[in-house]
């Protein structure tokens, strides 16, 4: 792992070329295999253009507010809902559901992955079950879970929990299983105890896989919420949007969509920031 990355990928990696001011050989410029790294703000170019076109279409009367509200109207509505306090309870209700399901799902996924990845008994007992759960779409469980848990909060959190658990388990388990054989041999020749091996080799080695799963999980918990908030609730962003549909208020629907997008992006950014900090040893690998 260490050696291949330090030398093998050197010229392919985008940034390495920029840092070392090596003159191009024999006049011809070197072939770039990967596109140059995008300056931070430029990623927003596409979204900004779409929003501008949308706004223009609304103002020119090409887009009726009954079909789709103008982004400026949606922003104004959103701001107003925020300042008169009508938005916050719904936001908190949604976030509460999403994050309690996420928390429980990640916790259970990691615990199960550890049991199954580090012990044979655990693998025999757990892995088959999770694989079966993986084959069943979360939404297919809704009727059964409603019978068990009713149509209240418990049902919603439970379904988010099960949706999140599976990818967390799968990725973390795979990472634990795919541990570098060279590192296992090293641990043996250094005479590490099982506890030391798990703490210093197996767990840190599985962390990148865990973070992949965490990013999936964060996206999933909000996705599941949209559907679940259509069922018997008086709170939540999904409820707001659903009610707005009955009244034909496309501005509120757009506000809801924007909130989901922002929450999704912010959550992902938070996970990525934590990941970058925890896995900071990788930052120096040139890619």
């Amino acid at each position: 792992m260490t050696d291949a990355t330090s030398e093998g990928n050197f010229y392919v990696a985008g940034r390495a070329g920029e840092r070392s001011p090596a003159p191009p050989r024999s006049g011809a410029s070197a072939v770039r295999l990967t596109p140059e790294r995008l300056p931070a703000g430029l990623r927003l170019l596409g979204p900004v253009l779409v929003v501008l076109a949308w706004e223009a279409a609304s103002r020119l009367g090409l887009l009726s507010p009954a079909t789709l509200t103008a982004p400026s109207t949606a922003l104004a509505t959103g701001y107003q809902m925020f300042s008169d306090g009508s938005l916050l309870p719904h936001l908190l209700a949604s976030a509460g559901r999403a994050y309690s399901g996420l928390f429980l799902g990640v916790l259970a996924g990691v615990v199960l992955a550890l049991l199954s990845g580090l012990t044979r008994t655990g693998e025999a007992l757990i892995d088959g079950l999770v694989q079966i759960k993986r084959a069943v779409p979360t939404l297919a469980l809704i009727p059964l879970v409603i019978i068990w848990l009713g149509i209240g909060e418990a049902m919603k959190v439970f379904l988010i929990f099960t949706a999140v658990l599976v990818p967390v388990y799968i990725n973390t388990h795979a990472a634990l299983r795919g541990i570098d054989i060279g590192h296992i041999e090293l641990a043996r020749t250094l005479g590490l105890s099982r506890g030391e091996f798990i703490r210093h080799v197996a767990l840190p080695g599985a962390l990148p896989g865990f973070f992949v799963s965490l990013r999936l999980a964060v996206a999933l918990c909000w996705t599941a919420l949209v559907v679940l908030e259509l069922i018997n609730t008086q709170t939540g962003i999904g409820y707001l949007m659903n009610r707005a549909r009955d009244w034909g208020q496309t501005d509120i629907i757009v506000v809801g969509i924007i909130i989901y997008a922002v929450l999704g992006l912010v959550s992902d950014a938070v996970v990525r920031a934590v990941e970058a900090k925890v896995l900071s040893y990788r930052r120096s690998l040139g890619s």
């Binding site: 260490t2 041999e185 090293l186 840190p204 080695g205 040893y281 990788r282």
Partner: peptide, 13 residues
């Protein structure tokens, strides 16, 4: 004690 050809340093330590 074994000295491997690839140094086998754990990258996270």
């Amino acid at each position: 004690s074994v000295l491997f050809q690839d140094s086998r340093l754990l990258p996270w330590m």
